[in-house]
Simulated scan of single mutants.
Amino acid sequence: MSKGQGMGIDGDQCAQGGEGQAWLWNRPVGECRATLILAHGAGAPMDSEFMQQMAERLAARGVAVLRFEFDYMAARRLDGKKRPPNPQAKLLEQWRAVHDRVRQQVAGPLAIGGKSMGGRMASLLADEQGADALVCLGYPFHAIGKPDKPRVAHLAELRTPALIVQGERDPMGDRPKVAGYTLSQTIQVHWLTAADHDLKPLKSSGRTHAQHLEAAADAVAAFLTR
């Protein structure tokens, strides 16, 4: 794997990405069995609590995680002003550049994916880029309140092995709604009981968010290192 592996995850290791932007690495202390490039969702940065906890949990399970920020989010970090996501073409362009750069730095399996929007963008180019695997955490099967406009056409033909970790009551794709979609046989969907888009369960379920994050990390690590 890349130089610096085994440095530990007691503090995120920073590396320069494209155009002077910083990347965040979480690396396993021991053997690295796979690498995952994990992109953030539309409204939260690469170091949000969700992204941080998932990266730490995966690194503890032998998966190195690289996080980066899309340009609109990196700009918000500089001046604090909220911006909408960049146009899809721009997001995909940046995803390609990050994947190509990381591919040059690591050996072994390299997966791409992300939280919500980040995962959706990864799914759009997984086949094109020849990614070894795809991981989506809370896939936005449709916009909130717009189940009649699904974002699934490309998922029916996906060739890349994929894992979608989804909450059963996700307002962007709950279990009954997703059951009606035609998905490629390469896609596995791992359902979390009574969980929402951030994988948080109802209190009445008897589950905690931490337990769901642990379950998600277990599923992702098993999928990537099988």
Rank of each mutant, 00 (worst) to 15 (best):
M121N: 15
V135C: 05
I112F: 11
L158H: 08
D127E: 00
A107E: 13
A131F: 04
Q104T: 14
A122C: 15
C136P: 02
T160D: 04
V102G: 06
G114P: 13
P140T: 04
G138R: 01
G130N: 10
L163N: 00
R151W: 01
L155P: 02
L134K: 02
T160G: 07
Q104R: 14
L163A: 00
T160R: 02
G108I: 09
R120G: 08
R159N: 12
I144P: 05
I112Q: 06
L125D: 00
M121W: 03
L158A: 11
D132S: 11
P150K: 04
G138V: 09
I112A: 07
F141Q: 01
L134E: 01
R151G: 00
A131N: 03
A107P: 01
A143R: 14
R103V: 10
D127Q: 04
R101F: 10
R159T: 11
M121G: 14
V102F: 03
D132E: 11
G119R: 05
L137P: 01
H142R: 09
M117V: 07
L155N: 04
A111H: 09
K149Y: 07
A126T: 04
P147W: 00
Q129E: 15
A143M: 14
A133S: 14
V98C: 04
S123M: 03
D100P: 09
L163M: 01
L125K: 02
D100E: 15
S123C: 10
L137M: 15
A143N: 14
M121D: 14
E128A: 11
